[in-house]
Amino acid sequence: MNIPFFIDSAMLGLQYAMLALGVFITFRILNIPDLTVEGSFTFGIAVSGILTANGHPFLGLLLAVLAGAAAGIVTGFLQTTCGIHPILAGILTMSGLYTVNITVLGGPNVNLLDCDKFFTFAVNLFPYAYRTVVKGVLILLICALAVFLLSLFFKTAFGLSIRATGNNEDMVRASSINTTKTKITAIAIANGLVALSGGIVSQYQGFSDINSGSGMIVIGLASVIIGEVIFGRRSVTIGIISAVVGSVVYYLIIALALSANIFSSNALKLLSAVIVGITLAFPTFKTKIAEYQMRRHALKTRSR
């Protein structure tokens, strides 16, 4: 068994954990599938990439978050104030972002291999430690911080009104809370996290590519769903943790499939789509099977 390969995969999962958190916020808390993710992930890659290439890796991550949040605000604005269907609003932003991203990046891709990254300082701080270990601990810390802050945020009065907005919007409005505000804020936070994920991924892999965003919504959904299979759907804090764990497990599953030579890496997108499709369809089929068995049982006993 190739241990370093699996460690790398787990680390990849942690880099994509922020993406899973973003998808968790829109898909589970707000109850809206938000397709902006595909564009805002690349937006994060582009902003962080171009700033890293110019020697500002930290500023790159910070601005990536703000850029993603801005994209989220646009989608939120389209959904609420303009009354556009949530899925279409996400598609519009995502599609428009392609032009923005390629303009920011100045070309289809940028090489970052020789630049300072945000983890370079940590690697230099511990010159005798393994590079991978330092990088891994750093990303673990970032994820822990994100989980901590988010679970704190969703326990505040404002966080509670965001959760309620996804649950019963009419009631929230009747409690004199502005649902336009709660929705836009939640979508902005979600896409800020997604863009942060993009920024981290691009710095870790050492290049920024314009096409990295495609299929990200499916990976995010797969992570959230795998997390729920492991932890169950319980409190919001457990949901946040399970999204992170789900992301790691997702990449471990992929690594397992790849190392067993079951699939070529080209099959990943199809594989992810199939996993998500089956899991989302599962509750419906469960009821259908139960009904079928009930019917069969009734017919059998009647004929006797």
């Binding site: 009065a157 509670l160 959760r163 309620a164 649950n167 019963n168 009631m171 929230v172 409690s175």
Partner: peptide, 30 residues
């Protein structure tokens, strides 16, 4: 079904209508 949020707990539902007039947005909800 209209007046309450089904997936939130009783205390969270009560807090939702209590907080608006009584709390800062980033204060602990309950």
């Amino acid at each position: 079904m209209v007046g309450t949020a089904p997936d939130l707990t009783i205390e969270e539902n009560l807090a939702l209508s209590f907080n608006g007039a009584n709390k800062h947005a980033f204060a602990r909800a309950v």
